[in-house]
């Protein structure tokens, strides 16, 4: 309870600091626009911004959703048997370390600056993160669970559907990493060719040194990403009502009691 109030204090402190620095003209207006000017920019541009926000949010969430599905499928296949692992591990582990942003030129070369190119990029990078997470979660489930399910007559697919997949839900913190990643890649991909989006808005504003609009776009992306993270967490928590509090704390779904 108290910790939450400290959080509010920190936020207010930062806000006051921002107002003070920009209000006292400690830096040029251009370098740090005041909150009032940022709100002013929203006031002027709101019809565009509503559209841009929807476009960016939609792109990131669609890519994230598709990537999670892909990752879930890959993770399950990799854990299914040695053969699939042999095939897929190499692919996943060689795609994953390459920053997706570095592949943007190729994506544009192949598919043009299209929505398809952007979604493909987001999907692939989220997919690899989720695949590794799902694979590790499945293979570290207590082996007694697998043995008990076998003894009780569950088929291979029933074992996955009814035992392994439900049990790994609290451990899927990779979903949260993937969601954050999807926003990062979305904005980068938008820089390179999506006029009507928050990324595009930043590019447009950059040309006219309209820093308050850039700041505004940054804030909106931040809010979107944060809201997505909170939503994922609350869904995971809802699906993990069976888990002990210590398990939830272990995977960051519940606050652990502090030592003092």
């Amino acid at each position: 309870m108290k910790a939450r109030w400290f959080g509010v204090l920190t936020t207010m402190g930062l806000l006051i600091l921002w107002i003070a620095i920009s209000g006292l003209r400690l830096t040029p207006e251009l370098f740090l626009p005041s909150p009032a000017r940022v709100i002013g920019s929203l006031w002027i541009n709101w019809p565009d911004i509503v559209y841009d926000t929807a476009a960016t949010g939609g792109r990131a969430l669609l890519g994230f959703a598709a990537g999670s599905m892909l990752g879930l499928g890959l993770g399950v296949l990799m854990s299914w048997n040695r053969l699939w692992f042999g095939f897929l591990d190499v692919v996943v582990e060689s795609v994953r370390p390459v920053p997706a942003v570095a592949a943007i030129p190729f994506m544009i070369l192949w598919l043009g600056p299209t929505l398809l190119a952007q979604l493909l990029l987001i999907t692939l990078s989220c997919g690899c993160v989720v695949a590794v997470d799902v694979y590790i979660a499945i293979t570290t489930v207590n082996p007694l669970m697998v043995r008990a399910a076998q003894c009780l007559g569950a088929s291979r697919s029933a074992l996955y559907r009814e035992v392994l997949l439900p049990i790994i839900v609290p451990r899927l913190s990779g979903l949260r990493i993937a969601a954050a990643l999807s926003f990062a890649i979305t904005v980068a991909a938008e820089f390179a060719g999506a006029q009507w989006s928050l990324g595009g808005l930043i590019m447009r504003a950059r040309r006219s040194l309209d820093t308050e609009t850039i700041m505004l776009a940054m804030l909106i992306v931040g809010v979107l990403a944060r809201a997505t993270d909170l939503t994922i967490r609350s869904i995971l928590r809802r699906l993990s009502r069976w888990a002990e509090p210590t398990t939830l704390a272990l995977y960051g779904l519940e606050r652990r009691e502090h030592l003092s």
Partner: peptide
Amino acid sequence: RLMIFQDSALFPHL
């Protein structure tokens, strides 16, 4: 054959 193990093997999510 059905084994009851030394450690608990109940499904935690059921």
